[in-house]
């Protein structure tokens, strides 16, 4: 196995609180994921790629923004690996870089409609920008 960046892998493990090496590649997370078909890398690949230190590929992936944080993978994983936490740790890692906000405050008004609940707006600020 080539560790592209062991340092970055450790950072993601720390940030997510997940030891990705516990994964036995059963695929239960990917079997469960409601956004599987939208993703370029799938949940089990996220876990594997973090272990291997291939962080940059994940940071530029479409999947990062497809995860619904529904925690179905967390609930059903037989190894106590929490793929949703890994995805979030990667999102946060990207957003904390300068100029990498996914959605900016200026984008938000254009996405609103009359009925959109407050919580969606609040969480958008928290989820998509730092």
């Amino acid at each position: 196995m080539v560790h592209k960046s062991l340092e970055q892998a450790c950072l993601i493990m720390d940030r997510s609180g997940v030891d990705t090496r516990k994964c036995m590649m059963c695929g239960k997370c990917s079997a469960t994921c409601p956004a599987f078909d939208e993703m370029d890398y799938h949940p089990h690949q996220f876990v594997k790629m973090v272990t291997e230190g291939d962080i940059e590929s994940l940071l530029s992936s479409k999947s990062l923004w497809k995860c619904l944080s529904c925690f179905a993978c967390v609930e059903r994983c037989p190894r106590g690996v929490e793929p949703a936490n890994v995805v979030e740790a990667l999102r946060v890692t990207l957003l904390r870089r300068q100029g990498e906000n996914y959605i900016t405050a200026d984008d938000i008004p254009g996405l609103l409609d009359d009925k959109l609940p407050q919580q969606a707006i609040v969480s958008a600020f928290r989820k998509y920008k730092k």
Binding site: M25, C26, G27, K28, C29, S30, A31, T32, C33, F36, D37, H42, H44, Q45, A72, R76
Partner: peptide
């Protein structure tokens, strides 16, 4: 691959699973 969920639909069972080698749900 593993099965994520089993449910009933129209009188039969549906298995939602992953094929890890084909990388398909």
């Amino acid at each position: 691959g593993q099965v994520g969920k089993v449910y009933e639909k129209d009188g039969h069972l549906v298995v939602q699973a992953v094929d890890l080698i084909a990388n398909k749900q």
